[in-house]
Design a protein around this nucleic acid. Structure first.
Lengths: 243, 243
DNA sequence: CCAGCCATGTGGTCCGACCACTACGGCTGG
DNA sequence: CCAGCCGTAGTGGTCGGACCACATGGCTGG
């Protein structure tokens, strides 16, 4: 019954001891992926095997896996196994939405400032590169947004409108960041108050301006229109804070 | 064998059933913070109490806590308790570094493109707003970087140089994002090859140009210098990919 | 030959025990 | 009386095992 000594014999480990066991496991797996020993889409060993390999309990290994799961690095399929995600921008930047959801006050303005910078550049790039097909999708959402007065639907198409433009800019990473910066709950929180001031008409005009610039393939006009569009919301939010 | 009915009797729960128990716990805690029921810095109930409150096991609750910990929302202090972080930009955007570390190939270029856009704007803002104290810190790192030839130290001061500028721009969120975009391992990976081409001299000149623009409080010059600085690395990396 | 069942293996959940560390308060010695 | 030590209760961290829910693929029976 004296299994106490069994622990001492394991002293031949490489990393002496730093941080919690789970934290080390997270780093180990991250390193495996970083070094290319685990390819995107590849299936990992079972939780039980992984735990055995790293010499930790299954509980700790599960915490490590859960952590990497919320980070968008791993994906667990019940009954099937654990897989490495495609490690695409969308996978890894999903957590960005959490930042937007939990930010308040001054930080919301900072977030919008970042969005203004990125969105204006993305829209300018889109104006130069957008294809007829992509332009058609943008127009589709623009029309759908003007055809309804259900706030939910308006927000959804507003989001899709900007997403389509970001995609046309040809930088998936930027598109994913902007997606997070405009996450559903974030928009809902801001729009509630913003729309009460009859800002919908102004929004419609601003969207039309952006659309015109895209059709004309005029990057500078697109940049200005997009910056003004986000800037409007930004200024309104700034004024709200002063209250 | 008919233990099937035992499940049906539990129908008196608030959330019917969606996703895993742990996932629900994560959302619940996130919601508590979002609704303001948990203030930054506040201490949470013990793991055991929290698990009991949500009607789940301690194991599942621990996974939820671990998930929120890696997201920078919670902080667990061994022997003391679990606390909500200050929810500042730095806390929540720490995970951004993971994206940079795990990205490869074309995505690295996209990442640098985002950085170029943000860094150039941040540097322009800094040129307009920087105070003598902040400028002194920038110069300190600039001098330290030129005074040594230890690659590790150079990278460290290079990072600090840009961080100081981002801080001077007055947008902590942007600074935190840029910090993640220039994470240690990310820089190390790129620099290894970049410096081999004797790019250090060019880097030094570019930093000097940025510094001059800051001293002159010339936003446009600062924007151009910063964009060129990041653009150089970007172009080099792009050429590497073509190989 | 094919549909449907079932054995197997996987992640998901729970339990209970113990360890490592912190914090706090009482106790001791000056 | 006070300072400092020390014990103790309480917390997060780790472990091992058991069982459940689900996915898969082979097998069986038609």
């Amino acid at each position: 019954m004296d299994e106490t000594l069994a622990k001492e014999t394991e002293s031949a480990e490489s990393p002496p001891q730093k941080g919690t066991v789970t934290q080390r496991a997270i780093e180990r797996i991250k390193a495996m992926i970083g070094e290319g020993r685990l390819e995107p889409g590849q299936r990992l060993p079972t939780e039980r095997d992984l735990a055995a390999q790293l010499g930790i309990s299954r509980s700790s290994m599960r915490e490590a896996i859960r952590a990497l799961t919320v980070l968008g690095v791993l994906e667990a399929r019940h009954g099937s196994g654990i897989y490495v995600t495609q490690l695409e921008a969308g996978d890894l930047l999903e957590t960005f939405g959490v930042v937007a959801d939990l930010s308040r006050g001054p930080r919301l303005v900072e977030l919008l400032e970042v969005r203004r910078i990125l969105e204006s550049t993305a829209t300018a790039l889109a104006a130069a590169r957008i294809t007829p097909d992509q332009l058609a999708e943008v127009e589709e959402h623009l029309a759908a947004m003007n055809a309804t007065d259900d706030p939910e639907e308006i927000i959804a198409h507003d989001l899709a409108f900007h997403r389509a433009i970001a995609m046309a800019a040809g930088n998936e990473t930027m598109a994913a960041i902007l997606e997070g910066l405009s996450s559903r709950t974030f928009r809902a929180r801001v729009w509630r108050g913003y729309q009460e001031e009859g800002a919908f008409e102004r929004t419609r005009r601003e969207h039309a301006a952006i659309h015109r610039a895209l059709v004309a393939h005029d990057p500078e006009a697109a940049r200005a229109a997009a910056a003004a569009h986000v800037g409007e919301v930004e200024e309104w939010l700034r004024s709200q804070l002063a209250t």
